[in-house]
C-alpha cells in the first residue's frame, strides 16, 4: 500500500514538473499545495486534471484541484472508492 502511494506521488510530481517547467528546481512533496506551483491557475488545474486522467484513468473533479489542495489529498481521492468506480489504475 505504501509503495503504491510512493508511486502515485512520484507520478504526480513528474506531471507537475511537466506542466510547470519553472518548477524544475522546486522541492515538491506530499504536503505541497497546488497554489505553491508557479503560475497556478484554473487553466493549469485542467492541465493537471488531464494528466491525472491519462495516468490513472480517473477524472479528478476540478473543485478538488484548488489552490489549497495538497498532493496527499489528490492521492487520497485517487485511492478512494469514488475514484475506483471511475478507473482502476490507482488501485
Amino acid at each position: 500500500m505504501e509503495m503504491m502511494t510512493e508511486t502515485i506521488i512520484e507520478s504526480i510530481i513528474e506531471g507537475l514538473r511537466e506542466i510547470f517547467p519553472d518548477a524544475v528546481q522546486m522541492e515538491i512533496s506530499a504536503d505541497t499545495t497546488l497554489g505553491q506551483m508557479p503560475e497556478w491557475d484554473s487553466m493549469a488545474a485542467v492541465n493537471l486534471q488531464t494528466y491525472l486522467l491519462q495516468q490513472f484513468d480517473v477524472e479528478v473533479p476540478l473543485e478538488l484541484l484548488s489552490d489549497e489542495t495538497t498532493l496527499i489529498e489528490i492521492i487520497t481521492f485517487l485511492k478512494s472508492p469514488v475514484s475506483s468506480q471511475m478507473g482502476a489504475a490507482a488501485h
Binding site: 484554473s42 485542467v46 486534471q49 488531464t50 477524472e59 476540478l62
Partner: peptide, 10 residues
C-alpha cells in the same frame, strides 16, 4: 477529446 469532458465548458 484530449481534455476531460467536464473541462471543455471552461
Amino acid at each position: 477529446n484530449q481534455y476531460p469532458a467536464t473541462s471543455k465548458l471552461l
